[in-house]
Amino acid sequence: MNIFRLAGDMTHLASVLVLLLKIHTIKSCAGISLKTQELYALVFATRYLDIFTDFISLYNTTMKLIFLGSSFSIVWYIRNHKIVSRSYDKSQDTFRHYFLIIPCLLLALLVNEKFTFKEVMWAFSIYLEAVAILPQLVLLQRTRNIDNLTGQYVFLLGAYRALYILNWIYRYFTETHYVHWITWVSGLVQTLLYADFFYYYFESWKNNKKLQLPA
């Protein structure tokens, strides 16, 4: 474990807590894409298949349970909670996210660390996470006024993978034979997808203006 990875995990945890705070306290999911939440639940479900077979550390298992529990409960909240589901605008959240799943699955069948069910599912989860934010970014472009919690949620979600890139650089230089092209390339693509969001988020913070993404 290094400071970059710990900071990355804490930033990821913070993004989940901000979203849960928004949904649980103000009972609203305005501006949140259910499709991105569904993709993230699938990411964790396929990445943490080893949660009961391989024990890494208490920290690792605890964080996996938190991410699994929070992602599925957020999907449940937006779909089924009588008040929260009313603030979900289905007509705006139109990205065909199923079109993301098939190519990621095909790519995972071709490019993986070992051709076993668990490893193909793990590679699938890495590729899917790289593109899981797309429905949310598309929705943000359509959302006239993005509320602060939503903006902070997306920012933290993007920042966590950027911190993981620093972690991979650190581990490359400090551990022998630490090379993981699958996570490196996917993590870079994932972070680059946030580039324009980061730009407008920073601009709105610097000029103290409302966050607005150009359509």
Binding site: R5, D9, H12, R47, D50, T53, D54, I56, N60, M63, K64, F67, E113, K114, T116, K118, E119, W122, Y164, N167, T183
Partner: peptide, 10 residues
């Protein structure tokens, strides 16, 4: 288990 890559990151 041997041979199976161990993913220690979340």
């Amino acid at each position: 288990p041997l041979g199976e890559p161990m993913h220690d990151e979340l």
